[in-house]
Design a protein around this nucleic acid. Structure first.
Length: 794
DNA sequence: GAGTTTGAAACT
DNA sequence: CAGTTTCAAACTC
C-alpha cells in the first residue's frame, strides 16, 4: 500500500522512516485478524470498512462510492477484529444525537452486525457516543475488555476505538454519512459530501467521518491536539464510474497523555475530505473503499513511505492523488475549507487535461516536460507539515513542501491508470496477518498530517492532468513557486534508518509502483500563513517568482515573523556550483533563486546533479540537512547547536560563529576557544545591548516613515472641502481631487525631467520633494487667499 | 567594492 | 580521526 502506516506515522516526527519504527508492525496484537482479500465480496453484515491493522478502520460508504457495493475490487469494507470502536455522534456532526453530553459511560445493546464484539457504549462529554468493542484477546495487548457496538439507524456516529494499548480510536460518522444501506443497513442513503477522518488519538489511527459542513464546528476542539492526518484519495478504477476522488484523512493525536478516557479523545475530530465530481455525477465527498494499509514495513518497492530524519515536531501529510486518464477529463473542484485548530487541510483538486487552471508562467521546455505535482503546506507558528502526494501518473513527480521543516517529499509516480497492480508492500510484509494492500490503493490518496501546534491551514492540491505539463503550487496570496522535481534514486531507498533528503523511497517506475523522494523541505518554498495552497495544473514553472523565505524558525529559533518576513540572502557561490553545503541555499534545501552564484546547479535544470550532491552530502553526514540548532539536553537551553562551534578567533561573538549567528549561546559541546558567548559574558551583553539599540532605532525609523507616509496619504486623500462650522476652511480642505491630481502631475513632470536629465536617483528624489514642497506652499497660499477673500462662506 | 578574516565543509 | 584545503560568508577598510 502506498500509505504511511499509522504505526510509522506516529514515529515520523521523531525519526521518520525509522526502520525500528517500522518493525512495530510485529507488535500487532494477537487478536488481530487477517482481513479478507481485497477481491472478496464485502459481507453485508460487516462494517463498510477494512483495515489491516486493528487500530485502523476503513470506511466504505456504498452510497457515496458507487463502486463500493457493485465492484468487489475496491469495495471491501470490513473492520478488523480486536479493535475497540467508539461510536460517538458528534454534536456537530450528528445533530440527532447531540443530547448525549454526559461523560459517564453507558451501555447500549444496539449493536450492528458490522461492529461485533462491542460491549459498551461510552458517551463522553463531547457529544460523542463511545462504543467499546470487545477485544478478542485483551490480555494479549493489554486492552481493557472491549465493548459492544452501537450504531442507531440513520444516525451519524463518530466511531472511535481503542488501540491495542488501550488508547482511544474514534470513528465519526456524520449525519450525512452514506452507508451502504443495502448491505450495511445503517446510516443515510443519500450521497452527501462526507468526510472520513481517521484519527488516532493515542498513537493509533482513528477514522472520523463527518460532513463538510459539520466539520468546522466539530473540529474546534482540536486546539490542543497534536494530530496526524491521513487522507486518502481514491479514484475509481473504472473510468465509467466517473472521476471521483476519495480522501481519507487520518488524524493522529501525538499527545497521548490523558487520552485514556473517551472524553479526552473526543476532540480528535479533524480532517477534511474533499472529493471531486464528474460531469455526470454530482459532487461526492466520500468514497472509501480502498484498504488503508497500516503495515509499518512498507519498505518494499511497492510500499512508499516518506521518511524524514528530521527529528522535530512536524506534521506529516501523505496525499495520494488519483491519476486520471487524459481521456477522462474531470472538472476541477476547489474546496477551500476551514478546519479546526490544530489541523491543516489539504484540498486536492483534480482538473481535467483541458483545465484552464494552468500556471500562467513560462518555463523552460526541459522543466515543462517534467510533470511535477507539488503540495505546499503552510504551517502556522512552529507547526510543520510534511506532505506526500503520490501520483499514479508516469514520470510525474510530486513535491511536498514542509514549512518549518527541512525536508520535503517528492513522490515519483508511474502510470497506473489502468487496473492497478498495487502490491503495497504486502509481499514484504513480515506479518502474515497483514492483508496485502488492495490494488485500488494505487489510486488512493493518503494524507497523514501531524499538526504540532494549533494551526489552521487550508491547502489545496490540484491533481495534475496526465499531461507532461508541470504543476505549480500557487496560493491565493503568493505567486507561484518554484518546485523541484525529484529523480529516481532507488539505490538509497532501502536505507530507511537514515533516509536522507533526496532519497527515493520506492521505485518510481515500473508496474505501477509509486515512489517517494525525500528531499530537504526547503527545496520548496514556504507559504505565508495561513495560506491557501492551490496546486494547479500548469505547463510551466514559474521561475521568475522569488523563492519565499524558508521558514527556518524551527531551525534556528527565529520568530515566525522573522523567518517569514526576511528573505533569504542570495548566495554568492562561485566554485561549489551551489551543490555543496557551502551554499546556504543548498544547505537549507532551497533552490537558488535571484542569487548571485556562478555556474549554479542548484536549480531545476540540474536536478540530477543536485540529487547526487544531496546524496553525497548525506553520505558524508546523514544529518547534513538536519537543523543544526536543536533542542538541548534537559536542563539546558532549549536551543543549542547540535554539533557545537569550533571558533578560535572570533570569541564566538561574531557571525562567524554559528551559535552566535543563531542567537544562542555556546554549549558544552562547543569546541570553541576563547568563547565569550555565554550567559554572563560582559562582551556578549554589550553586544546584545548594542544590537537591541540598533533594532530599536530601525523600528523607530520605520515607524516614523510609516507615520509620515500615512500623513501624506491622508492629506492627499482629502478631496472634498470640508464645510466647517464657522471656523473656516483649513488649508487641507483645499486639497481637492483636482488639486491632488495637479500636484501629482507636477511631481511626475519633475520626475520625468530628472529622468531625462539622467539625474541620479537621489537627485531625482530631491527634485520631486522640492516640487512637492512648492505645491504645498501654493496650496496653502491659495487656501489663505480664499479664506481672506471669502471669510464668511469659507 | 575589494580585500581580509573566519570557520564550516570538504578533502586527504 | 586529525590535519589540510576549499569555500563562502562575515567583516574591515
Amino acid at each position: 500500500m502506498d500509505v504511511v502506516s499509522p504505526e510509522l506515522n506516529s514515529l515520523l516526527p521523531d525519526e521518520i522512516m525509522d526502520t525500528e519504527a517500522i518493525a512495530m508492525e510485529e507488535e500487532l496484537p494477537a487478536d488481530h485478524l487477517a482481513l479478507p482479500p481485497p477481491q472478496s465480496e464485502p459481507e453485508p453484515a460487516q462494517v463498510p470498512m477494512e483495515t489491516e491493522v486493528p487500530e485502523i478502520v476503513s470506511l466504505c460508504p456504498a452510497t457515496t462510492s458507487m463502486q463500493m457495493t457493485s465492484t468487489s475490487t475496491d469495495a471491501q469494507c470490513s473492520t478488523s477484529t480486536g479493535t475497540q470502536l467508539l461510536l460517538a455522534p458528534s454534536g456537530l456532526m450528528a445533530g440527532t444525537t447531540t443530547t448525549t453530553t454526559t461523560p459517564a459511560k453507558t451501555t447500549s445493546s444496539a449493536v450492528t452486525q458490522n461492529l461485533p464484539k462491542i460491549s459498551s457504549v461510552t458517551v463522553p462529554a463531547n457529544h460523542q457516543l463511545i462504543i467499546n468493542k470487545v477485544a478478542s484477546s485483551p490480555a494479549a495487548d493489554g486492552k481493557p475488555p472491549g465493548a459492544a457496538v452501537l450504531k442507531p439507524e440513520g444516525q451519524k456516529l463518530l466511531v472511535a476505538g481503542l488501540s491495542k494499548t488501550g488508547q482511544p480510536i474514534m470513528l465519526a460518522l456524520p449525519h450525512t454519512w452514506n452507508k451502504p444501506a443495502t448491505t450495511q443497513g445503517t446510516g443515510d442513503a443519500k450521497a452527501q459530501p462526507t468526510q472520513i477522518k481517521m484519527v488516532t488519538a493515542v498513537g493509533k489511527p482513528v477514522i472520523a467521518v463527518s460532513s463538510a459542513s459539520q466539520l468546522m464546528g466539530s473540529s474546534t476542539t482540536l486546539q490542543a491536539q497534536q494530530l496526524k492526518t491521513l487522507q486518502i484519495t481514491k479514484k475509481p478504477p473504472v473510468s465509467t464510474a466517473g472521476p471521483m476522488i476519495t480522501k481519507l484523512i487520518i488524524t493522529k493525536a501525538l499527545n497521548n497523555k490523558g487520552l485514556t478516557s473517551p472524553s479526552s479523545v473526543a476532540p480528535v475530530v479533524t480532517g477534511r475530505v474533499v472529493t471531486q465530481s464528474t460531469p455526470v455525477t454530482p459532487p461526492r465527498t466520500i468514497a472509501i473503499g480502498e484498504t488503508v494499509s497500516t503495515v509499518p514495513q512498507n519498505t518494499s518497492g511497492n510500499s512508499k513511505v516518506a521518511i524524514s530524519p528530521l527529528k522535530s515536531p512536524s506534521k506529516l501529510t501523505v496525499v495520494s492523488v488519483a491519476s486520471q486518464s487524459p481521456n477522462s477529463p474531470q472538472k476541477s473542484v476547489t474546496l477551500p475549507l476551514n478546519v479546526a485548530l490544530g489541523q491543516q487541510i489539504l484540498t486536492v483538486q483534480q482538473s481535467a487535461t483541458t483545465s484552464p487552471a494552468k500556471a500562467g508562467t513560462s518555463q523552460s521546455a526541459a522543466q515543462a516536460v517534467k510533470p511535477v505535482q507539488t503540495v505546499t503546506v503552510g504551517g502556522v507558528g512552529t507547526s510543520q507539515f510534511k506532505t506526500i502526494i503520490p501520483l499514479t501518473t508516469p514520470p510525474n513527480v510530486q513535491q511536498i513542501q514542509v514549512p518549518g521543516s527541512r525536508f520535503h517529499y517528492v513522490r515519483l509516480v508511474t502510470a497506473t491508470t489502468g487496473s492497478s497492480t498495487a502490491q503495497t508492500g504486502a509481499s514484504t510484509n513480515t506479518n502474515p496477518s497483514i492483508q496485502p494492500a488492495k490494488p485500488v490503493m494505487m489510486n488512493a490518496a493518503v494524507r497523514m498530517s501531524v499538526p504540532i501546534v494549533p494551526a489552521q491551514t487550508v491547502k489545496q492540491v490540484v491533481p495534475k492532468p496526465l499531461t507532461s505539463a508541470a504543476q505549480v503550487v500557487t496560493t491565493t496570496q503568493t505567486p507561484q513557486r518554484l518546485i523541484m522535481p525529484a529523480t529516481h534514486l532507488p539505490q538509497i531507498q532501502p536505507n530507511l534508518t537514515n533516509l536522507p533528503p533526496g532519497t527515493v523511497l520506492a521505485p518510481a517506475h515500473g508496474s505501477g509502483n509509486m515512489g517517494y523522494a525525500v528531499l530537504p523541505a526547503p527545496y520548496v518554498t514556504q507559504l505565508p500563513q495561513p495560506a491557501f495552497v492551490t496546486l494547479t495544473s500548469s505547463s510551466t514553472f514559474s521561475t521568475a517568482t522569488p523563492i519565499q523565505t524558508q521558514a527556518r524558525l524551527s531551525l534556528n529559533g527565529l520568530s515566525t515573523s522573522e523567518a517569514t518576513s526576511r528573505p533569504r540572502k542570495p548566495c554568492n557561490c562561485t566554485r561549489s556550483q551551489c551543490l555543496k553545503l557551502y551554499c546556504d541555499c543548498f544547505a537549507n534545501g532551497e533552490f537558488c533563486n535571484n542569487c548571485n552564484c556562478v555556474n549554479c546547479f542548484n536549480n531545476l535544470d540540474h536536478e540530477s546533479e543536485r540529487l547526487k550532491a544531496i546524496k553525497a552530502c548525506l553520505d558524508r553526514n546523514p544529518v547534513a540537512f538536519k537543523p543544526k540548532i536543536g533542542k538541548g539536553k534537559e536542563g539546558e537551553s532549549d536551543r543549542r547547536h547540535s554539533k557545537g562551534c569550533n571558533c578560535k578567533k572570533s570569541g564566538c561573538l561574531k557571525n562567524y560563529c554559528e551559535c552566535y549567528e543563531a542567537k544562542i549561546m555556546c554549549s558544552s559541546i562547543c569546541k570553541c576557544m576563547g568563547c565569550k558567548n555565554f550567559e554572563e559574558s560582559p562582551e556578549r551583553k554589550t553586544l546584545m545591548h548594542l544590537a537591541d539599540a540598533a533594532e530599536v532605532r530601525v523600528q523607530q525609523q520605520t515607524a516614523a516613515k510609516t507615520k509620515l507616509s500615512s500623513q501624506i496619504s491622508d492629506l492627499l486623500t482629502r478631496t472634498t472641502p470640508a464645510i466647517t462650522s464657522g471656523g473656516g476652511k483649513l488649508p487641507y480642505t483645499f486639497v481637492t481631487k483636482e488639486v491632488a491630481e495637479a500636484t501629482c502631475d507636477c511631481l511626475l513632470e519633475q520626475a520625468e525631467q530628472a529622468e531625462l536629465a539622467n539625474q541620479p536617483q537621489a537627485v531625482a528624489e530631491r527634485l520631486i520633494l522640492e516640487e512637492f514642497g512648492r505645491c504645498l506652499r501654493r496650496i496653502i497660499s491659495f487656501a489663505g487667499k480664499a479664506k481672506t477673500d471669502c471669510p464668511i462662506n469659507c
